[in-house]
Design a protein around this nucleic acid. Structure first.
Lengths: 146, 146
DNA sequence: GACTTTGGTCAGAGCCTCTGACTAATTTGG
DNA sequence: CCAAATTAGTCAGAGGCTCTGACCAAAGTC
């Protein structure tokens, strides 16, 4: 089966995204962090250093707050995050990274750096820079949160 | 909450991918094609003009053949695809696009073209070309099917 | 203080995806 | 040519993800 050379830009974007996610996931699992799922990771990734509200996590991950709540529940049970009261709003709680999550993040960051380096080697420094530049610019028209 | 300017390349890839998928999906729904799901679409997208085997669809969409089978079942019930015997192998069947799917594809293609045009306007012709070039090159190291 | 908005939860349903086990046709190695 | 291994696909079952709708409580508005 021949794959036509002109794929649409969507598929072109998805392929490396998926490849990167798979690499990170495999490395995490190998390092012993095998008790969370991709969906949980996509939420966890968005938690800021000072903690982030559930609603905000939901918006950024583009899921409903119910879904985000469900995923945070799992992460909490697995010891990756804590929920602490938000001092500025008694309704709200801040979802914070626990130590275990920070350790996992170190592993993940290392793999991302590794893969990015591989890509840069394949593309050349210049093209890699152009790629990131173009993608960053694209956020302005594609990221409701930019 | 401030979003740091240096997002990792994975997120950078995911954002426009998701934005495009959402646009296509909304347009399809508006055109009356509201009886299939994103997961089904990701499989349907991979069906070649002469039809494609289930196993091959599964590999390309990066799901198990059971999952692919499940999705093709739905698509068949909804009238988007047919399964015809593969003349070269009595075990296999070819999944083929039905007329309904071709009509949906026309709508989808139009929206993709529209979005790509918007992106090109935002990025400029040169940067858009560079983007597609870099992504196409990246397939060599990220697409097991390239 | 009533009204609206916002942060979050509970319940239920449907969809997606996987693992494991299996059948049947094809290919491979002697 | 036949036995063994591979490949195409299915069935059954379980678990995970995500949504809609309904709801409560705190905060902001007038």
């Amino acid at each position: 089966m021949v794959v036509e050379s002109e794929l649409n830009t969507g598929v072109l974007l998805f392929l490396p995204y998926r490849a990167l996610e798979n690499r990170v996931f495999a490395a995490l699992a190998e390092a012993g962090f095998d008790d969370f799922t991709p969906a949980q990771a996509r939420v966890m990734q968005r938690i800021g250093p000072q903690g982030t509200r559930l609603t905000e996590l939901a918006e950024q991950a583009q899921v409903t707050k119910q879904t985000a709540g469900f995923l945070v529940d799992q992460l909490e049970k697995a010891g990756y995050v804590r929920r602490v009261p938000d001092p500025t709003d008694k309704r709200a709680r801040l979802v914070c990274l626990a130590e275990k999550a920070r350790a996992a993040k170190d592993v993940a960051d290392a793999v991302v750096a590794e893969v990015e380096k591989e890509w840069e080697e394949h593309l050349g420094k210049r093209r890699m820079k152009q790629l990131r530049e173009a993608l960053t610019l694209l956020r302005e028209v594609t990221d409701p949160w930019a």
